[in-house]
Design a protein around this nucleic acid. Structure first.
Length: 203
DNA sequence: TATACGATCACCT
DNA sequence: GGTGATCGTATAC
């Protein structure tokens, strides 16, 4: 029996949720067709104190859903071109989230290739490069700003609980692309499955 | 109203 | 190793 990732795990602790999401399945259903992948890389963003977290700048239109209930999607546009998918964590009013950075495609690869080939590019991406980054993952699954705020236990997009990845196969390190965040830039809040070919950057 | 820049990616040398 | 694409957001005026 497949279960949705439990809301209490989103609610309890963001870094632990980020680590526990490794190995779980991200499933997208569109036109009765399924796409799915194994989450292999995540990052924890710890709210108002965390200078790398959008909500550290306060409650705005963009960050509004992070202040809402856990288990919902926070989707934002980055660099004017790409979307990033997060899961909101912690109780309402504590604006934290986990960024889903990469997944290993396991189902619906044909459709993912189609989604990833819309943009101008020389050649079709290799399977391991379909979703090995936060922007690519959203492009492969057809996730855009209209998904902002939706429940991630719903039909169109959901996360399914899988057995935990053993500690020996989990690595942690600094988050990507937040050099501006002072001491927060160095904290080991990025998690990935050691040796997995679909992780976004060199380990 | 104006401006600088970002939780990225693909292509270039 | 470097850089352009492209636009919403935060911040400054």
């Amino acid at each position: 029996m497949i279960h949705a990732f439990p809301r209490r795990l989103y609610k309890a602790d963001t870094a632990e949720a980020a680590r526990r999401l490794l190995g779980c399945r991200l499933v997208r259903e569109v036109d009765g067709e399924r796409m799915a992948g194994i989450i292999v890389e995540t990052e924890a963003y710890l709210g108002t104190e965390d200078l790398g977290c959008h909500s550290a700048r306060g409650r705005t239109n963009r960050t509004e859903v992070m202040f809402g209930p856990p288990g919902h999607a926070y989707v934002y546009l980055i660099y004017g071109m790409y979307y990033c998918l997060n899961v909101v964590t912690r109780p309402e009013g504590d604006p934290q989230a986990v960024l889903i950075r990469a997944m290993e495609p396991v189902e619906g690869l044909e459709r993912m290739r189609g989604n990833r080939s819309r943009r101008r590019r020389r050649s079709s991406p290799a399977d391991r490069e379909l979703a090995n980054g936060p922007g690519k993952l959203c492009e492969a699954l057809g996730i855009d700003g209209s998904f902002n705020g939706i429940d991630l236990a719903g039909k169109a997009l959901r996360i399914e609980l899988m057995p935990p990845v053993p500690d020996r196969d989990v690595a942690a390190g600094p988050r990507i692309g937040i050099a501006y965040a002072g001491e927060w830039a160095d904290k080991p809040l990025r998690f990935w499955i050691r040796g997995n070919p679909c992780v976004s950057t060199k380990e």
